[in-house]
């Protein structure tokens, strides 16, 4: 009887973990299966794909799909008079994502530092604004945003879109705030006694101490902006990014670009840079980020 109870207890301990493991494993396998399947299709001819949509190509591998996708990955501008190719799109993506990620991270970091380290009342108000804005939906402001950007002369410019993205609203402010509020004050106090000013303390002590966090947030933001096609589509129409190019390529119905094998090769071309970034910074990206606190 005792051993039966033990067995029940053991399975109550193990069974939920096994179920969770199986579910997570299914998601894990699905993503890698999809990526490998995509890779296999991108190397097939249309005939090979039609004959067998699963598995790597039997016979010849068609690396030219990548070359063709690269050539056809164009976005027409000004009624088709100008075509923006993939290299230029990568360039625009880099500008949009690097600038956007840098300014957005910097503004979140600076605002969090000021509000966490100085005891002025405005800091509490800013913190409350962030918390309220997170849960206070403003729906349908896109038309207004487009009109205001045009009015301010910020529409369709990198400066404008960086300015728009350089907001402290969002969860990363809270993450920075928690980091600065929890950091020991003794180093900055010692520097202050040695005559260091506020700017020097921020640049030489606080920023380097939060450097890892800054870098992690910036990479996450960079990836987010790199993948974002909807914002550049609306606010940066003359500078199509690679993600927008993919959107255009996906829905392009010209004969050759309509081949699934080429579209999938195009998708792999877009996924590759982020995949490389992910492999390089994997530990940092899937490391531990904390949003709020835990209960004391």
């Amino acid at each position: 009887m005792k051993s039966f109870r033990k067995k029940i207890k053991k399975s109550a301990e193990v069974l939920p973990a096994i179920i969770l493991f199986l579910l997570m494993a299914a998601f894990f396998l699905l993503v890698f299966f999809l990526l490998i399947w995509g890779l296999s299709v991108s190397l097939k001819s249309v005939a090979q794909f039609r004959a067998s949509p699963i598995g790597f190509p039997e016979g010849e591998w068609h690396f030219e799909n990548y070359f063709n996708a690269f050539k056809s990955f164009n976005v027409p501008l000004h009624g088709g008079r100008v075509e923006v190719g993939l290299l230029a799109q990568y360039g625009y993506s880099l500008l949009y994502a690097l600038g956007g990620a840098f300014f957005a991270t910097l503004v979140s970091c600076v605002t969090a530092y000021a509000t966490a380290r100085f005891p002025f009342r405005l800091g509490k108000i800013v913190y409350a604004i962030v918390v309220i804005a997170l849960g206070l939906p403003i729906v349908g402001a896109l038309p207004s945003q487009l009109r205001l950007m045009s009015l301010l002369g910020l529409y369709d410019s990198f400066f404008g879109i960086w300015f728009m993205q350089a907001s402290f609203l969002g969860v990363y402010f809270l993450i920075f705030h928690a980091a600065f509020a929890g950091a020991p004050k003794d180093i900055s106090e010692a520097a202050e006694i040695d005559g260091a000013g506020n700017l020097r303390i921020f640049l030489e002590i606080a920023l380097p101490l939060s450097g890892k966090l800054f870098f992690t947030v910036m990479i996450i933001k960079f990836i987010g902006f790199w993948n974002d096609y909807q914002t550049p589509m609306l606010f940066l129409p003359s500078f199509p990014t690679a993600a927008y190019g993919m959107y255009y390529f996906f829905f392009d119905t010209r004969t050759t670009s309509a081949w699934p094998t080429m579209k999938i090769a195009g998708a792999i071309l877009l996924l590759t840079p982020v995949f490389v970034v992910f492999l390089l910074f994997q530990k940092r990206l899937v490391g531990d980020l904390m949003l709020g606190g835990i209960k004391e």
Binding site: M24, F28, L34, W37, N227, Y229, M246, A267, L271, V286
Partner: peptide
């Protein structure tokens, strides 16, 4: 390892993943 598999789709391009 499983965490990587769960987080990866969020980090990859939504439009490219949608194509696949």
């Amino acid at each position: 390892l499983l965490k990587i598999g769960i987080v990866l789709p969020t980090l990859l391009s939504a439009i490219a993943m949608a194509v696949l």
